[in-house]
């Protein structure tokens, strides 16, 4: 038993960034050779980018049924490849794909999984793992007993650093497949531009915006910043914005470089979802709003004046630089 296996997720024919983050993590963990497993038609085209991120060998399952996601077929294939490759560590991205797949693999292999991990370091033969719980109100330190150790990595936390290696050697592992049970029949992209959990800048609005049409102010600010738009829960519940916008303990947990909270009071469930943001800016008319306790910067004022002023000041800054 040695080495690390990275389960590679592709999106529209490209390797997802979290998979490259997993590759860089695998190299850093130094558990031996790093192998990747990718699925889907055209997967061998990714050998170059994976090689550059330290992958020596790329296993590809591209024939049907691997051209469409099926949790049962994919999990069974991953389990079989793990038995062949015998890695000590298996890394997944904690995306919708990885969160669906990894625990099923854990169940098939009876191997321990630490999910949505933000910190992982080699510690002798062991891994020292940190993962947020209570949506980031606390962090848990865990260890996985035995091998393989399954870890799903939260996106956007680990760096992805190309090391300049040659293209990975590509081969096809022999796996037995049963008829797929759960099968993806269609995928539809939302029209929102940037996905919150992957965004490096977010502008979020709450009930302080007073009415759905006022989100236009935030969209204008977001456009100058190149930011995604999010919200507190009540405004999503009221249908001002789609449910997918809602940030917090029962919505999206985000970790952008910049989070701008506009007309959001800063309830504990909201703050839990943003506490990993590098810089939080709060705009609120109430100087005692709890959001100011977690903010790095704040402006006390009427958002209907402050937000347009901020948009204008940012435009000026962008044009000047």
């Amino acid at each position: 038993m040695s080495g690390t296996l990275v389960i590679v997720e592709q999106l529209e024919g490209r390797v997802r960034r979290v998979a490259l983050e997993a590759c860089t993590t695998a190299v850093r963990l130094g558990q031996g050779p790093v192998t990747a497993l990718a699925f889907g038609a055209g997967a061998s085209a990714v050998a170059e980018v994976l090689g550059a991120h330290g992958i020596e060998q790329l296993l590809v399952l591209s024939e049907a049924p691997f051209d469409r996601y099926s949790s049962d077929v994919f999990a069974s294939a991953v389990a079989q490849v793990v038995r062949q490759v015998e890695p000590t560590v298996v890394l997944f991205g904690a995306t919708a794909f990885g969160k669906d797949l990894a625990p099923r693999v854990s169940g098939l292999l009876k191997a321990g999984l630490a999910s949505d991990v933000t910190g992982v370091d080699a510690d002798g033969d062991d891994l020292a793992i940190t993962r947020p719980v209570y949506a980031g109100k606390a962090f848990q330190r865990v260890r996985i007993v035995g091998t393989p150790k399954l870890v799903s990595l939260r996106p956007n936390v680990q760096p992805a650093t190309p090391g300049g290696g040659a293209a990975a050697r590509v081969s096809t592992p022999a796996v037995e497949v049963a008829a797929p049970q759960a099968v993806v029949t269609a995928t539809q992209r939302n029209d929102e531009t940037v996905e919150l959990t992957e965004a490096s800048r977010i502008v979020s609005g709450g009930r302080g915006l007073k009415a759905p049409e006022n989100f236009r102010l935030l969209e204008e600010l977001a456009a100058v910043l190149g930011a995604a738009v999010g919200s507190s829960r009540p405004v999503a519940d009221e249908g001002w914005v789609p449910h997918s916008y809602h940030v917090g303990q029962t919505g999206k947990v985000v970790s952008p470089d910049l989070y701008v909270a506009v007309g959001i009071s800063g309830a504990i469930q909201h703050v839990a979802g943003i506490s990993n943001s590098k810089c939080i800016v709060a705009i609120n008319s109430d100087p005692d709003a709890p959001i100011f306790k977690v903010a790095n910067y704040g402006i006390v004022g009427d958002l209907f004046q402050v937000v347009p002023a901020l948009t204008a000041a940012l435009k000026e800054h962008v044009e000047a630089s």
Partner: peptide, 13 residues
């Protein structure tokens, strides 16, 4: 297979 060793709180802002 998974052992929780302890907890810590996020660093103060």
């Amino acid at each position: 297979r998974v052992v929780v060793e302890g907890y810590q709180l996020p660093p103060p802002r």
